[in-house]
Simulated assay, not measured.
Amino acid sequence: MSSKSPTPTPRPGPASIEERRAQQRDAARIFREKQQKKGLYQTTVWVTLAQAVAVREWLRRGGDVSVLRSREEKGGHHG
Rank of each mutant, 00 (worst) to 15 (best):
G39I: 13
W58E: 04
V67I: 10
E33F: 06
W46M: 14
V67M: 06
L59P: 01
R60S: 15
L59F: 09
E33L: 05
T48R: 06
R61F: 00
L59S: 05
V65E: 05
G62V: 01
T44R: 09
T48S: 12
K34F: 11
D64G: 06
Q35G: 05
K37D: 04
K37Q: 08
G39V: 10
L68P: 01
L59H: 03
G63V: 04
Q35R: 10
T43L: 12
L59A: 13
R69I: 01
V67E: 11
G63Y: 04
L59W: 04
A50S: 12
G63C: 01
A52W: 13
W58K: 05
R56I: 03
L59C: 12
K34A: 15
A52F: 13
K34R: 11
A52Q: 11
L40D: 07
Y41K: 01
G62E: 03
W46Q: 14
K34C: 12
R71V: 07
E57K: 01
R56F: 06
S70H: 08
S66V: 00
S66H: 05
G39F: 09
K37R: 10
V65D: 03
W46K: 15
S70T: 04
E57P: 03
R69C: 12
V45D: 03
Q36V: 09
A50F: 03
G62P: 01
W58Q: 02
A50N: 10
V45F: 08
Q51D: 15
T43Y: 15
V65F: 00
Q36E: 15
Y41E: 00
R71G: 03
T44F: 14
R32V: 00
E33N: 02
R56M: 02
A50V: 05
V45N: 06
T44H: 13
R69H: 10
V55G: 03
L49S: 09
Q35S: 10
T44Q: 12
E72W: 08
Q35D: 13
E72R: 09
D64M: 00
R71C: 04
W58F: 11
V65C: 04
V45Q: 09
T43Q: 14
K37Y: 07
R60E: 15
V53G: 04
